[in-house]
Design a protein around this nucleic acid. Structure first.
Lengths: 145, 145
DNA sequence: CTTGAAACGTCGCCGCG
DNA sequence: CGCGGCGACGTTTCAAG
């Protein structure tokens, strides 16, 4: 992982559909060399994959929320992940410091759909209760990093 | 926007580097037809772009946090966005219902870096105070949708 | 890094509803 | 007239040298 790899990562971060020639130009490499580097980055997990950025509003995903979750007992992060993964509306989840045990980000089609999703989260065996706030508007959503 | 477009979106969501032949196969179309559809989805903003999913831990981004921000006065979402965009460590930001005005997701290299980033957020003219929690571990991070 | 063959992207043209 | 298939040409990919 050096400056060349960083240039490659930044190039595919900006446009995942770049050709290897473009990636190579950004990194000062030939196309085959760029491909070998990128293949290696994918193989060792530094690059986890390639996706599209979709305007979720445009196909109906109009309602989102953040929920603080409080657990019962002290489940491991792995147990919590297992239970939260079962709810497809959960797009992000993190264990956190502070009063709550985790923060989960939910996306749904509308309010009834969101309510059902939160309901399913609360049904998880390791979860005691949740405290939710509705997202009013998305301000920023930058690709990481 | 029909079932064919949805199939295309899902295909590039799973792998943004899919060939047009693969996208076409997923949607029951020829490669040129798939390209025309995808080009149209990009042109009208339904697909905002294509990125890589990077393992942020792997290149040093080891510290993240969520901050609830409380504003002074009542800034518009646009003003809030402008001020938060000035801080590159802010990867997500949303206005929300509830006591806080917004939730912002920050990523930093380490604790001192995070502290400086939060400092910069608090310096924004429209922001009164913030309340932060540190992320202990990332459980889920699904591509949307 | 360069090469060459196979695969892919891209464009124009035609046919269909 | 929008939309999809087909064919052709230049470009890119990719494995071998």
């Amino acid at each position: 992982m050096d400056a060349i790899d960083e240039a490659i990562v930044q190039c595919v971060l900006r446009d995942a559909r770049s050709t290897y020639a473009e990636i190579g130009r950004a990194a000062g490499l030939s196309a085959p060399a760029a491909k070998r580097r990128l293949d290696r980055l994918v193989a060792d997990g530094t690059v986890r994959g390639f996706t599209a950025l979709v305007d979720t509003q445009a196909l109906g995903w109009r309602t989102e929320a953040f929920a603080e979750v409080y657990c019962k007992g002290n489940p491991t992060p792995a147990e919590l992940r297992r239970d939260l993964e079962a709810v497809p509306e959960v797009v992000e989840a993190y264990t956190v410091s502070g009063a709550a045990d985790a923060i989960v980000h939910l996306m749904a089609l509308d309010i009834p759909h969101l309510e059902r999703a939160i309901q399913r989260v609360r049904e998880a065996r390791v979860i005691e209760r949740t405290e939710s706030v509705i997202v009013l508007s998305g301000l920023i959503n930058r690709p990481r990093v």
